[in-house]
Design a protein around this nucleic acid. Sequence first.
RNA 1: GGCGGCGUAGCCAAGUGGCCAAGGCGGGGGUCUGCAAAACCCCUAUUCAGCGGUUCGAAUCCGCUCGCCGCCUCCA
Length: 491
Amino acid sequence: MKVYNTLSGTKEEFLPDGSQVNMYVCGVTPYADCHIGHAMSYIIFDVIRRYLEFKGYRVRHVQNFTDIDDKIINRANALSISARELADRYIAQYFASMDAINIQRAHVYPYATQEIPQIIEIVQGLLKKGYAYEAGGDVYFRVTKKPDYGKLSHRHLEDMVAGARVEPGSGKEHPMDFALWKSSKPGEPSWPSPWGGGRPGWHIECSAMSLRYLGETLDIHGGGQDLIFPHHENEIAQSESFTGKPFVRFWMHNGLLQMGEEKMSKSLGNLVTVEEILRKFTPDALRLFVLGSHYRGPLTFSEAGLEAAERGVDRLRVAMEGGAPGGDSDLEATYRRRFTEVMDDDFNAAQAVGALFDLARDINRKKEQGLGTKGLQSLLKELGAVLGLTLKKLEKSVDTQSIIELVAEIRSKVSSVDQGLALEVFSPGDIVASKFPTTGAETYIDLLVTSRTRLRKAKQFALADEIRSGLAQRGITLEDTPQGTVWKFKG
RNA sequence: GGCGGCGUAGCCAAGUGGCCAAGGCGGGGGUCUGCAAAACCCCUAUUCAGCGGUUCGAAUCCGCUCGCCGCCUCCA
């Protein structure tokens, strides 16, 4: 399979050492709710991992939490809680959001604050080799000592220095030198070190964690494109200077989520949280929205786009319903091959999704023809799962009370039309059931559906249609099939 | 100033030298249905921002022009 490598700027043949793939994905700084940009990135790397596993690789996935930095300290101070408390709160929130959108958990989630000894060891090693220097309790990386500094982001030191926004740090030898260790100010969280009390710089934790949990050379290191510079560039500088080995075989970066004309970012304050999205759309719809475009390209957030994705995923859900035993091994093999071919080409999930829609059409076609569909349906389920789609039926909550009101309304209308019909439509047992509002809404919906069927048999179509439209207003759709009427929640 | 990306049907979007330019949403027609819904069938880009060039052949390669965006500062 081919995978695009940011380092080379081309697609390369993906050949890990053995059957194991070591994958490190940059995690979050837990100081705020997860937004859909995070969702996009982690959905993408979730699919990459799921596909590698589908291909038979054993993936070891490590993802960090940067649980100490300026933003955490500032936010914690503003809320008058400890940095630890704040980080723990948002780490819990991170897991809740990601679990909700069916992201597989990494095997290890190291915390920056729990890797201090490893970090200090690396900083000491870099000092010893002359790649770093101390300046007043801070330790900086000496970028001029690394001749290929800039190789990931494809820039040169001279160009960067020429840029307007580079400000020389007080004790820095070179404006692009970056902190490995920062001395702490009074009142800030602090860890003892050979250079005095302080805390790690932003980039060093990833070098320490990946080295400890995955070894000197990673197969895949991923994150958003916004991390290419300076974060990942600096990680390379640190890690390779320390170990003398190549740090990463494949650098993978996802495109960024855009909000209309501008990007979504914390500083612009135009964030949409995962929680907000899930109030309106299903996790599958969010996934389909993300996977509909290429992972390296930008994605523009839009409610209309998510609505389209919701309708689309509903087609896949419908294809999973019903069906008869039987298979079509040729067709199954064709789809499996098509799916694999496009995913082998740098995880072209958009093409894979296209294959799933065609597969769904073939399933529905066979259903119409009365042919066996179970084989194709289990394939759709399997390939959908590789993309992290659950294809679960929509489950929404309904207002039981409003359904009961509809029952009462319909009953009075039926009896005003024909007393005898009323008795027939709502049998005594039905009416007894309706006197107990503690019963779930399903009971009443079923009651209405049954009554509607009887009304239709009696050619009372106006009343039957009132039941249908009444339920529709309450978020429930009816479908009359040869096997009878089924109801479902509206998408 | 440096680096990188984008511009494909009403909308989203795949496609990087050659079968009819994926797929989704939307729209139109039809089948089914008491009517619907869902599903299925057919239609919805002779054309890929514009202009030149390379080639037997380009949306795909090269050049220029126009428009848009990201990174270079915390960010997935």
